[in-house]
């Protein structure tokens, strides 16, 4: 399918509408929904699986600017990020900073 077939404004508006629908429904259901219930757990699992699939795909088979980086560069940068993350007691910020800076360093 060609990206020019639809207007980005529509894509963004629809994405915003479905996102707000979840928030609004959450308000309407607040107090009635069991946060530990099975439905919420299912939503969480679907989100986690979808995000994990997206993240791995973005890193392993990028489609944007990261196409300009060789696979081994992204791989090493992820490893550096992971290493720093685990060394500094699971600090997300430090891991992201280290991994991104290392990618920049490798590509310079």
């Amino acid at each position: 399918m060609n990206p020019e077939l639809y207007n980005p404004v529509w894509v963004i508006t629809l994405a915003a509408a479905v996102s707000y629908a979840s928030r609004g429904l959450g308000v309407a259901l607040s107090g009635k929904l069991n946060p530990e219930g099975s439905v919420v757990e299912w939503i969480t699992c679907v989100t986690y699986a979808l995000m994990a699939g997206m993240v791995v795909r973005m890193l392993a088979l990028p489609i944007g600017a990261l196409v300009h980086t060789p696979d081994w560069v992204r791989f090493i940068a992820v490893l550096v990020g992971l290493l720093v993350f685990f060394i500094i007691r699971k600090n997300v910020g430090a891991g992201v900073l280290a991994g991104s800076l290392f990618l920049m360093f490798l590509m310079w």
């Binding site: 994405a15 259901l29 009635k32 946060p35 919420v40 979808l50």
Partner: peptide, 16 residues
């Protein structure tokens, strides 16, 4: 997008 952001539903429902 709907599936990813569906997690906003339990988030709002528990925070409000």
């Amino acid at each position: 997008v709907g599936f990813i952001n569906a997690r906003l539903l339990p988030m709002s429902a528990t925070l409000l």
